[in-house]
Amino acid sequence: MSYRSLTENPMPIWKKPFDLSLLNASNHGTAARHLGIEIIEMGDDFVRGRVPVDHRTKQPFGLLHGGVSVVLAESLGSVGAYYASPEGHSAVGLDINANHLRSARSGWVTGQARPVHLGRSTQVWHIDLVNEADELICVSRLTMAILAPR
């Protein structure tokens, strides 16, 4: 992957404990669950997840719907922003963009989110989505607001 993290030798950025099974279970009744999005890995400075290319996620021409790519990107960046923010803080999306570079017709699309900026009140995340052949299909940038407890 050509994108570099915040540092050459990443240190863990997470400020809250996480458990992948509990994280995925918390998606019950959400858009992510309906679309089949799964968080599959959290490394020291990244979040990885995937979405199936199936009847729930395709557009009428048989391709992965571009909006589903954006939902996956925002889901990954949002999870990262939440766990990289201090205890008691929450994270909400401010802006997202996506460039669709290639289509996917079947299988799984996997995304990886890494921080570009981890500030006190905002975070910026870069998300790459690839198909099963590891071809880049979408690049996205997500800006998050970090909200202090009320």
Rank of each mutant, 00 (worst) to 15 (best):
R56E: 12
T57Q: 07
K58S: 09
K58E: 10
K58Q: 15
Q59H: 11
Q59R: 14
F61R: 12
F61T: 12
L63S: 06
L63K: 04
L64T: 00
L64A: 02
L64H: 02
H65M: 10
G66S: 07
G66E: 03
G66V: 07
V68N: 04
V68P: 01
V68R: 00
V68G: 03
S69M: 11
V71M: 13
V71I: 15
L72K: 05
L72P: 04
L72A: 06
A73H: 08
A73E: 03
E74I: 09
E74N: 06
E74W: 08
S75G: 14
S75F: 08
S75I: 08
S75N: 14
L76E: 10
L76S: 03
L76F: 12
G77T: 01
G77I: 02
G77E: 03
S78C: 09
V79E: 05
V79L: 05
V79A: 04
G80P: 03
G80Q: 08
G80W: 01
A81E: 05
Y82L: 15
Y82T: 13
Y83E: 09
Y83F: 15
Y83R: 13
A84K: 09
A84W: 05
A84E: 11
A84Q: 13
P86Q: 10
P86N: 12
P86K: 11
P86G: 11
E87D: 15
E87K: 13
E87F: 09
H89I: 01
H89N: 14
H89V: 02
H89A: 12
H89P: 00
H89C: 14
S90K: 08
S90V: 10
S90T: 15
A91N: 04
A91F: 05
A91W: 03
A91R: 02
G93F: 04
L94W: 00
D95A: 14
D95W: 01
D95F: 07
D95Q: 15
N97W: 02
N97L: 02
A98W: 00
N99K: 10
N99Y: 02
N99A: 11
H100Q: 10
H100G: 06
H100N: 07
L101M: 13
L101W: 03
S103F: 02
A104I: 02
A104W: 00
R105S: 12
S106Y: 05
S106Q: 14
